[in-house]
């Protein structure tokens, strides 16, 4: 089948971060201000099919994989992607308490100590694999559990929908 995906030619691509914290891109002789980067698969494939959009949120094209870019450019894009899809990874769970159809979590993450409450329902837990789960709290913030097996089973059992 003919490939209709609008891939950007990574050899003709350069990015720069402004003092204000935004990204600008030069591609095929054209300069784009305040572009934004999106993941096509924010959960299952974080480094591939990166979509670049202009300041009016119109798609300029896709980057097939960050690995096609020089390491420093890839790191810059990854930084902005991580800001957009902010999801601390849960390193350990100190305590889970059940309360009125909610579970209150007290945990340590890659971004520090967090406390949040999660509704007791299926929708609060997105199972990416049997072992990897995204936890969504009552406000819609996300936390990632990379491996359920690595966390204290005694606490996790209290979240029955997990």
């Amino acid at each position: 089948m003919e490939n209709l995906i609008d891939y950007l030619n990574t050899s003709d691509l350069s990015f720069v971060e402004t003092a204000g914290g935004f990204l600008e891109m030069t591609y095929a002789g054209e300069h784009y201000k305040r572009i934004s980067v999106y993941r096509s698969f924010p959960l299952s494939d974080t480094d591939e099919f990166i979509c670049v959009r202009d300041k009016d949120n119109k798609e300029i094209g896709l980057i097939r994989a960050l690995s096609e870019l020089p390491a420093d450019v890839a790191a810059l894009l990854r930084k902005h992607l991580d800001l957009r899809y902010f999801t601390p990874k849960i390193l350990t769970v100190n305590q889970i308490r059940e309360q009125f159809g909610f579970t209150n979590w007290n945990a340590e993450t890659t971004r520090g100590h967090v406390e949040f409450s999660v509704r007791n329902e299926h929708a609060s837990f997105v199972h990416l694999t049997a072992d990897r789960v995204i936890v969504v709290d009552t406000d819609g913030n996300r936390y990632e559990i990379e491996s359920l097996a690595a966390l204290p089973a005694k606490e996790l059992r209290k979240a029955v929908f997990l």
Binding site: N104, N106, R111, G112, H113, V114, E115, F116, S117, D137, T138, D139, N141
Partner: peptide, 10 residues
């Protein structure tokens, strides 16, 4: 420090 989405203090 950190993030608190639940009542303080814990």
């Amino acid at each position: 420090t950190g993030f608190s989405g639940v009542n303080r203090p814990n």
